[in-house]
Design a protein around this nucleic acid. Structure first.
Lengths: 346, 346
DNA sequence: CTGAAAGCGCTTACAG
DNA sequence: CTGAAAGCGCTTACAG
């Protein structure tokens, strides 16, 4: 045990009071030194900051929050992540938020339909902001947020509630690129593999794809429903695909993980080889899409920009949580052609 | 704007004081009602709890923390997650921790060698506990934790510092299973594909594999170093593998993601087909290992039990952060044989 | 430019 | 079993 007489390693944290005493100043002055905008003599500030560094003083964020009514916390709400797109988003978003002085409280919803509970849970720590990944929530939960004065950003989804902010890829444009690519490769019988029906991403990708196909004078694409955004769902799509009357030759999947599952499903169950028999395009550009085993042609999400926009919005929201609802749709850069699409021989 | 005269949706949160006034009780009594162990008349407690529910009162966790010196926060420190094993761990661990009343502050280290900074960052919110995923940290950082009275659990790694707790799979046993499997399939020239050299997982898997191979009377396995736990690293292992004198016929990779990269690398660059030419075993049983495109034979991590043990330890640590260092090595259930290993024809 | 004082929303000895 | 009071570590009007 050390001289300073505390046990169990629970050293008493140094407080403003300690620092003030040490410096022969008032706590007010010490406190002010940590706020760049506060009025305090430059020399005084320097002295305080130096000594703080030496003594290892870090302002207690809780005490601070009680006064300022800002916690610098963002509640990050996620639900069952079956899509490998999200882990990267989570960690990168967290890193970016940290860089602007925010901290991330991670709340994991046990199921997609328990997002509301997760939001309430997140709210208990009075975050300045809530970011919802991969889900939407009820208007009731949204109301609780506004009641708590907490803004809400939906990432890669659009909120049903007009009070929510949103940051997504421009899915319509992306889906049109997929249609153009398939058509230009000579495919005429097109199909969309749909995932979670209520997701705005799913809806918009279908809409953009369908509209563009029709616009170019082709019959409306057929549609296979697989239920959600996962490998297993995509894999299970083979049966419905087989049941389609006239077999399509060009397939656009709701996203990459569904596309990968779909490709493997039709290979296993129907003996269909990609791109020999059909061309397939995905969406997201997850890591596996570039693996040589998959080499998936896909529309990359403009993730860098989506993250940057989210961080910027978060910074503004931290200052004023009541700024009017913003919806950002970032245009995808363009399609990456790999080996799941090819020119159709006629 | 509503009658109650506040703007921007920033409704004033209801406090103990409000609740006490409403009930005609003192704040002390109200406060006590929320602690099952506190002495308060059963009827009084019921009244308080009911009214709290109605008024939507939730104790302010910050105010509470200032007094109790317990934050109910666990700092979850992660670094660049190139291994798909971790996203699942993160979200599931978070969910379990939530279920015992802890909240997770996620801190993302920008690089594996910046874990120390991330730990300091996490410490600023005075977590009751820090959980480190996929990394170790310096003794200096460990010292800061103990100085702050914060315990530390290393998940899927072993700490160099004896003060840290650890929860890992029993990698030695797992690696021995891999050796036995390969040997029983008739392979005699064995090889280990090593990832991040300093990781305890990497070290132990090599050690268990090597020892078992030698124990069974075979020559020491050759070793290919690929640098870290990622697809790209595994993929890049092909060159070093080609340079090996006598080509091995049985390969054990440091983990699944490395195995997948390795298999694709040798196929692309060397024309080696698995399992036709060589057998390959991985470790972890990530989602992709069961995809039909990979069908990887692997040693699953006992993730359910690892999570349960971690949560249990966290619960005990929340009560007393100074309990002596525990290291849990959970035995893997057994090898899952898929299609990357086969009996060698002689 | 600095300091004394009030107060954020709680919990917890201490009395009664 | 309950209440009045002190105090956790800060910030911020308010004086000077």
């Amino acid at each position: 045990m050390s001289d300073d007489g505390h046990k169990g390693g629970t050293r008493k944290r140094v407080t403003v009071k300690d620092l003030a005493r040490e410096l022969g100043m008032s706590v007010s002055t010490v406190s002010r030194a940590f706020y760049p905008d506060a009025v305090v003599a430059p020399d005084t500030r320097r002295l305080v900051l130096e000594r703080a560094e030496e003594m290892g003083y870090r302002p207690n964020p809780f005490a601070r929050s009680m006064i300022t009514r800002r916690t610098q916390i963002v509640g990050l709400v996620v639900s069952g992540i079956t899509n490998p797109f999200y882990p990267e988003v989570m960690t990168r978003l967290t890193a970016e938020l940290q860089s602007i002085g925010m901290n991330v409280m991670l709340v994991s919803a046990s199921a997609p339909d328990r997002i509301d509970e997760a939001v309430v849970q997140a709210l208990s720590y009075q975050p300045d902001l809530i970011v919802i990944l991969a889900a939407t929530m009820s208007s009731r939960a949204m109301a609780e947020c506004t009641a708590a004065g907490t803004a809400c950003i939906f990432f890669n989804r659009l909120s049903l509630d007009p009070a929510g902010h949103g940051v997504t890829c421009d899915n319509i444009t992306g889906a049109r690129m997929a249609a153009d690519h398939l058509i230009e490769r000579g495919h005429r019988k097109l199909c969309y593999v749909a995932a979670f029906p209520d997701a705005s991403t799913n809806i918009e990708r279908w809409q953009g794809f369908r509209d563009r196909v029709v616009e170019r004078g082709l019959p409306e694409p057929s549609k296979v429903e697989v239920g959600n955004f996962s490998y297993e769902a995509g894999f299970s799509g083979a049966e419905a695909f087989a049941a389609l009357g006239d077999r399509p030759d060009g397939v656009f999947c709701a996203n990459d993980i569904v596309a990968i599952g779909f490709i493997e499903g039709v290979r296993e169950k129907l003996g269909i080889e990609v791109p020999r028999d059909i061309s397939v395009v995905g969406f997201d550009n997850i890591a596996m899409a570039s693996w040589s085993s998959h080499a998936l042609t896909t529309i990359p999400q403009p993730i860098d920009e989506m993250l940057a926009v989210t961080t910027d919005l978060a910074a503004r929201l931290a200052v004023d949580p009541s700024i009017p609802s913003e919806v950002h749709r970032i245009a995808p850069i363009g399609l990456i052609e790999r080996e799941t699409t090819r020119v159709r021989e006629t």
